[in-house]
Structure formats: structure tokens, C-alpha cells
Amino acid sequence: MTEAVRLMVDYAFTELKLHRIVACVMPRNLGSTRVLEKAGFHHEGIARSNVLINGKWEDHQVLAIINPED
């Protein structure tokens, strides 16, 4: 999965010329958080009550990566 995220990031930065990519993950989803960290994403904070899931507002960990060429 980490390799897939790295390929997506590379495509987004080289082909689409994006400046920044943001990912939001439920804090208890440690596997997804680790994949993003290994792909170079950094933690930016917690978005409180960010998404309504199954009738409950859930917090999300916000991670981002910035194009090193910008």
C-alpha cells in the first residue's frame, strides 16, 4: 500500500503539478496513518467532528505532503 501511495504522490506532483496533497484518517486507523507517514506525509493536527459516519461525528487526523519542487 505504501508503494501505491508513493506512486500516486509522484503522479500528482510530476504530472498534475499539484502543490499539496491532504489526507484525513480516523485517529484509530494506525495502519493507514503509518502508510501515509512512510510515504512522506506529515501530521498537521486533528479535525474535530469532521465527518458523520454511521450517525456519529468522527475526528480525523490531518496529514499532508508538499511538492518539494515548489
Rank of each mutant, 00 (worst) to 15 (best):
N29A: 05
T14R: 11
N54L: 05
I46H: 05
V9Q: 04
D59W: 04
V51P: 00
V9M: 10
D59L: 10
F41I: 11
G31R: 07
E15M: 14
G45I: 02
F13K: 09
M1Y: 13
R20T: 01
T2M: 05
D59I: 05
I66C: 11
H60W: 12
I46K: 03
M26S: 13
W57Y: 13
M1K: 05
P27G: 15
V9T: 06
R28I: 03
P68L: 15
R20V: 01
I66S: 07
K17Q: 12
R34C: 07
Y11S: 06
V5H: 07
H42M: 11
S32P: 08
F41E: 01
F13Y: 02
T33M: 13
A4L: 11
L16D: 08
H19D: 06
I46N: 00
A4D: 06
D59G: 00
V5K: 04
V35F: 01
V22Q: 15
V51E: 12
T14K: 14
T2Q: 12
T33G: 11
A47Y: 04
L18N: 07
K38V: 03
E15D: 15
V25D: 01
R34N: 14
R28M: 08
L36W: 04
W57T: 04
A4N: 04
L63T: 03
G45K: 03
N50E: 08
D10Q: 15
K17P: 05
H60E: 12
K56C: 12
K17T: 11
A23L: 12
I66M: 13
E3I: 03
H43E: 07
A12S: 13
R28G: 00
L16F: 14
V51K: 10
G40T: 04
N67I: 08
E69I: 13
I66W: 02
H19R: 09
I53G: 07
R48H: 10
V22K: 14
L7K: 09
E37A: 07
M26G: 05
V62A: 01
G45R: 09
A64M: 03
L30E: 08
E44T: 02
K38Y: 10
N67E: 09
S49Y: 03
M8Q: 06
E58F: 09
A12G: 15
L18R: 15
H42V: 14
A4K: 05
M26N: 11
H60Y: 11
P68Q: 12
A39Q: 08
K56D: 13
R48Q: 13
P27L: 06
R6D: 01
F41H: 00
H60L: 10
H42T: 14
V5A: 15
L36Q: 09
E44I: 01
G40V: 03
S49I: 01
